[in-house]
């Protein structure tokens, strides 16, 4: 089977535990205003290329000594990796056969049986929560959040470990009410092992202009360290989960 891949980073420590090879899949149907990889949106792009599962497995396998030494593995990211869920499944099964740990990082805005079908060979889900407020979600990412939240509940039911990723976008997702709602939502979900708070950053902005897309968040500044700390305490208080702030 062929997978359409935007790029591969063989050394990431920020997309799951340990050293990980991250495969950025091409294509996404969300249009998050703060996206730092808008070049992964379209299903076809000059910069992406098709990989056979054999070719990708060759690259993945080469990381095994590093995965073994750190409890790492592979993470499919994107784009929305679940748009190519069959390819993911094939790779995950091959990885499982040789003892490589598997993860995907998804917005979970996809139909529930697609996810259910993958979970049997998934070791970790990095699950985005974009915004707890449905109307704000619609405005920020171009879609409501029902599917997102119900899919998280499903994964929890299936007993697959989850790390929540929440991007703190000033004026969009940093309202304490919304963050608290998120914390309360995840509190009872026992498979959620930790929450990563990611400060919004403007590093991907140049890609928007290169692609000729209008960037709505032009005047936005990244949240301060103090604000991130406050939100961390808030989430910890209402969820009792481990919370990690990214740089």
């Amino acid at each position: 089977m062929l997978g359409r891949i935007h790029s591969i980073d063989t050394f990431s420590t920020l997309d799951g535990p340990g050293i990980r090879t991250v495969i950025f899949m091409q294509g996404c149907f969300l249009r998050c205003k703060y996206c730092h990889n808008p070049d992964t949106w379209s299903r076809e792009s000059d910069h992406s290329r098709d990989y056979t599962s054999e070719a990708l497995m060759h690259i993945i396998t080469r990381g095994k000594p590093y995965f073994d030494a750190t409890g790492g593995g592979i993470t499919f990211s994107g784009g929305e990796p679940l748009l190519q869920h069959q390819f993911l499944k094939e790779i995950f099964i091959l990885c499982r056969e040789i003892g490589i740990s598997t993860a995907f990082d998804s917005s979970l805005y996809v139909s529930t049986n697609i996810i259910d079908n993958l979970l049997s060979c998934t070791d970790l889900v990095l699950a985005d929560i974009k915004q707890m407020d449905r109307a704000k979600s619609q405005e920020l990412v171009g879609s409501g959040n029902e599917l997102n939240l119900s899919n998280i509940e499903l994964i929890n039911q299936r007993r697959v470990p989850i790390w929540i990723r929440y991007v703190v976008v000033p004026g969009w997702t940093d309202d304490r009410k919304d963050v608290e709602a998120m914390a309360r939502f995840i509190a009872p979900l026992t498979c959620i092992e930790r929450v990563d708070l990611l400060p919004y950053h403007a590093l991907g902005r140049h890609k928007w202009s290169m692609l000729g897309i209008k960037y709505d968040l032009k005047d936005l500044h990244p949240p301060s360290r103090e604000q991130m700390m406050e939100l961390k305490l808030l989430v910890e208080k209402h969820s009792s989960k481990q919370v990690v702030i990214h740089e």
Partner: peptide, 25 residues
């Protein structure tokens, strides 16, 4: 530093693992 992990403990563990994986080959 931030590319090695989100906190010092992770950074130390990942750098150690990077060295291990490299030298094992």
């Amino acid at each position: 530093p931030s590319a090695l992990g989100v906190n010092r403990e992770e950074q130390v563990s990942n750098l150690t693992g990077l060295l291990s994986g490299y030298f094992m080959q």
